[in-house]
Design a protein around this nucleic acid. Structure first.
Lengths: 367, 367
DNA sequence: ATGAAAGCGCTAACAG
DNA sequence: CTGTTAGCGCTTTCAT
């Protein structure tokens, strides 16, 4: 490697370059150490094209020239201005992720999966908590149209449905993928699990262990995933010849602990002969709340009431008793969503498939 | 409002505009409905400047003209290209948030606070999980230098320290604020709590309720916040005349449930006469793990061992027994961090202060 | 292998 | 009140 000035002793860039077209004055953008690509080019004595080639690792640059450019970049601390690059290449290299609530560990883990593959492919993540401002005037998809992000992944069931509804044909044209909540008929790439089967598996387990009065704490029935899980629940009851009582079904509009605790408390107020001896909650956070609500109602788990959750977040193994739950491959869900989106971005023509990932019933001690 | 074409019947934009300099061909950027600002201007019969003025709500546009422009924008579905705007205005309107682990509800809630004020001021959030790729070659602060984000908020203690160390003077020059982990001497704006006091409060509570053999499960002692909490712990013991045993202090390098459970199990293996009758964990996630570890060791909480956590995440109130903990104003921490950063961005000269927010001991049933 | 030059779409002087 | 115009810093033909 050629001799270079020490980083600490690097001369103040541009200090005496009178020919600098746009100086480091107030408001100018070239205030960064190293200035613009033009400044680097001039100092090295090559053209901006050459510097650009070096920057982007193009092959057709003589090694000696490349070295000189690299040395100057190193010495001056030059950094490419991605604002300019983005305009020129017409891409932001940002992926928009819409999540209903990243306080929920389930979503947090999916987001992690997205982040990991995105970063590996040179993209960063724009994160929007859709629950943060429900009364928003504009669609988050506008961020795509305004070129703020190149593509989007939507984890929010409400937003997924709104998208499928509001932009019947445009929806499929925009580069986005639905994650967890999806409508195969919408023509939008998606990744999720077989919610019907998963719910049926859970309820079958409850039935197999002798429970007959099984309650379902579900999220809003407007959501497809909620409908599918409800249907799986009903199917399991039906095939066991158990009459499904309306009183056993409660819908909550929020998946937090309190909602689960309240729902469980309400369920325990049912007449003694129809009071549930099992509760299936469609989210582990809900189920943890259920455990708490049951404790408040002086019920033992699983003695008096068995509890099955959904997702298998890390917390599920920590509570008392450890939660039996339907595991979703959260990490893979996020990774797959990102990969599908990236594939779509690489080739807008490619028709990206919908993919279903396997779920798994994890039996611990709550049921 | 003047008559406008229905959205559904809007004519296909640019379809027959031969004079379009850069068409909607492959690779062109103006493929968005409505084309570029120039296309809108031409269709309305005004200059690009006028359209830009309307777009940006500048006052000096005749109402009639404004209406015509607005109508065309509405009809064509034109959306401003933020890539171009960003280059021109030299700002990305993105805030970078670095978090060590957004699976931890503590950070998730802070991030929410950041997101909420950022969005309210027209900024979006670039979220990076610093734990995701520890062996990264480049500093996340490079994202600032490359103009990928206008400013940064760092929630990761390791990254905060690295920043303070690696860029002694440059650090203070970059627009960023430290959150939760901070060094007042570094000259970097920050927001956090008084960790020393908070820890002392927690341990004093334990002592006041008759505990004498108090263990501390702390994070890595390299972190300032860990040192401060340790000192608060030691101070409380000292003022009560309790000798601090080394065996009572365990450091973990990860704040997840398992780490807490393991630490608690280890602590319960101590000789009977020095086995702790209380455990103070510096994070609620750790404390929840402790509860689990204690259960495994057949200890009762708080009967045999009292437990105090830190943060007061929503989960704290749900576990059995409900966790006594030091509450941090998570939401406000995030909001304040964002506000400090935004203030710095609005006026680079302004010297933004460090701010300490109040903590509060929440007494539930674990201690 | 290298350079000259043309913009990407937008904002903001400046001029009228 | 409106238009003309000069770039923002970069990538990328197209020449040489």
């Amino acid at each position: 490697m050629p001799a270079q000035p020490q980083p600490g002793s690097a001369s103040p860039p541009e200090a005496d370059e009178a020919s600098e077209a746009h100086g480091a004055g107030v408001g100018g953008m070239a205030m960064a150490r190293g200035g613009s690509i033009a400044a680097v080019a001039r100092r090295v004595g090559v053209s901006v094209a050459t510097v650009s080639r070096v920057l982007n690792g193009h092959a057709n640059v003589r090694p000696a020239t490349r070295e000189r450019v690299l040395a100057e970049i190193e010495a001056s601390g030059y950094r490419v201005n991605e604002l300019a690059r983005n305009l020129r290449t017409a891409e932001s290299r940002l992926l928009l992720t819409m999540v209903p609530d990243f306080g929920n560990p389930f979503y947090a883990e999916i987001v992690r999966g997205i982040d990991s593959v995105a970063r590996g492919r040179g993209y960063f993540m724009l994160l929007c908590d859709t629950g943060a401002d429900a009364g928003r005037e504009r669609s988050y998809f506008d961020l795509l149209r305004r070129h703020r992000a190149d593509g989007a992944i939507c984890l929010d069931p409400a937003t997924v449905q709104q998208a499928n509804r509001m932009m019947a044909d445009e929806s499929a044209a925009l580069p986005w993928v639905a994650c967890c909540e999806f409508d195969p008929a919408a023509g939008v790439p998606y990744v999720g699990i077989d919610n019907f089967q998963a719910a049926r598996d859970a309820v079958r387990h409850l039935i197999a262990s002798g429970r007959r009065r099984i309650a379902l704490i579900n999220s809003d029935d407007h959501y497809l995933y909620a409908q599918q899980r409800r249907d799986g629940y009903l199917a399991a009851l039906a095939e066991a010849g158990i009459e499904a009582r309306d009183a056993w079904r409660v819908n909550v509009n929020c998946l937090d602990y309190e909602a689960g605790a309240e729902a469980a408390a309400a369920l325990m107020h049912l007449r003694r002969d129809i009071a549930p001896d099992a509760i299936f909650a469609v989210s582990d956070t809900l189920a943890v709340g259920v455990l708490n609500g049951l404790r408040g109602a002086l019920r033992r788990v699983p003695g008096d009431v068995a509890v099955v959750g959904f997702d298998d977040i890390a917390l599920a193994a920590q509570v008392d008793p450890p939660l039996t739950t339907v595991a979703q491959p959260m990490r893979e869900l996020g990774e797959t969503a990102a990969r599908l989106l990236l594939r779509r971005l690489a080739d807008p023509q490619a028709d990206v498939p919908g993919v279903l990932l396997p779920h798994r019933l994890v039996i611990r001690q709550s049921a």
